[in-house]
């Protein structure tokens, strides 16, 4: 098991290297001059030259890439052109918001999705089964940027139950420990802040969870149905176990194996979806930050942010692989 984990971690290195090549050249090879993009078409030649020199754009590409890579190895992503702040600092400030939103969305997606999938499979062809499967197809087809707006209209504008956007009301203050507001307010026993943070996260988290939830429900159902046909389920029934034990102990642990892989893959959708969700709900995370960098043509920040999100994504995929091996004893031997 340990050697498997080490091998998986080592396999990450060429991937991250590949990502860096792709990100760098995608941004530097596309037609157009980054300096001109930054300053606009009417910038003076002198100003353009200065910017090019400042960014090292006058050097040959491979020299530029070498510099980018050596900085990257030291964990330095350069400075954002808009603010002249270190990109790592800017990302570090916003990362917890995205993490908190993603975790909350994943909790929604996994609990509701798996529950719907299991209940559908154990009641195959029932009304519940049909309606939850139709709903899940609607879910995978959902434009979440629209769903977010509709939820806002219903729950904020008309009913006034939930705050329209943002992460916290302006008068609330939370002592930062982890940067995750819900966790921090729990740790500091700041109950009003906890309530405020939870109220703010419900809509964006639910919006972000829609597609993963639907996918998880579908895969859980089909995986459970497949497992329920197996011989060992008949054995479990022949032991005199109750349906609850047969379904939730004997079947679920087997059905979980493909489900976990799919859950892992959902993080990619989540990271992508976070860009849309954060935009709609003005959630101050990486997605919103990256999009603003795109709007501002801050190619340094886009490069750094993309690098980081892609690396996070492949790292999560690696962790899922390891978890998969851990839960499936048949893999351990090989």
């Amino acid at each position: 098991m340990l050697s498997f984990i080490i091998r998986r971690i080592l396999a990450l290195i060429p991937t991250v290297f590949g990502i860096s090549v792709l990100v760098f050249f995608m941004i530097h090879l596309v037609p157009g001059d980054p300096a001109e993009m930054m300053l606009g078409e009417r910038a003076s030649e002198q100003a353009l030259k200065e910017v090019r020199e400042q960014l090292g754009l006058d050097k040959p590409l491979h020299v530029q890439y070498g510099r980018f890579l050596s900085r990257l190895a030291q964990g330095d992503l350069g400075r954002a052109l808009r603010t002249n702040e270190k990109i790592t600092t800017e990302i570090a400030e916003r990362f917890p918001a995205t993490v908190e939103l993603s975790i909350a969305a994943m909790i929604f997606a996994v609990t509701l999705g798996m529950l719907a999938g299991i209940m559908s499979a154990t009641r195959q062809y029932s009304v519940f089964d049909y309606s939850s499967m139709v709903l899940s197809l609607v879910g995978v087809s959902m434009p979440i940027f629209w769903l977010g707006l509709v939820l806002m209209i219903i729950f904020s504008v008309h009913l006034g139950w939930l705050p329209l956007s943002g992460r916290l009301s302006y008068h609330i203050h939370i002592e930062p420990i982890t940067g995750l507001y819900i966790l921090d307010s729990l740790l500091t026993r700041n109950w009003p802040a906890l309530k405020d943070a939870v109220w703010h996260i419900i809509m964006p988290a639910f919006t972000l969870s829609t597609i993963p939830m639907a996918i998880i429900a579908r895969i859980t159902r089909s995986s459970m149905l497949e497992v329920l046909r197996q011989d060992y389920i008949r054995t479990a029934k022949a032991k005199g176990l109750s349906p609850r034990v047969v379904h939730y102990k004997h079947a679920l642990k087997n059905a979980l194996i493909p489900v976990i892989t799919v859950i892992g893959l959902q993080f990619g959708i989540l990271l992508g979806g976070a860009i849309l969700t954060e935009t709609i709900f003005a959630w101050p995370g990486i997605g919103l930050w990256l999009l603003n960098a795109v709007y501002a043509r801050d190619f340094n920040a886009v490069q750094g942010g993309t690098m980081l999100i892609a690396t996070t994504f492949v790292t999560i995929n690696m962790l899922v692989d390891i978890l998969y091996a851990w839960i499936n004893p048949r893999i351990k031997v090989s």
């Binding site: 011989d231 060992y232 479990a236 004997h250």
Partner: peptide, 10 residues
């Protein structure tokens, strides 16, 4: 079927 009648994950 002894090969498939035991639950593989326990």
């Amino acid at each position: 079927e002894p090969m498939t009648s035991l639950n593989p994950v326990f």
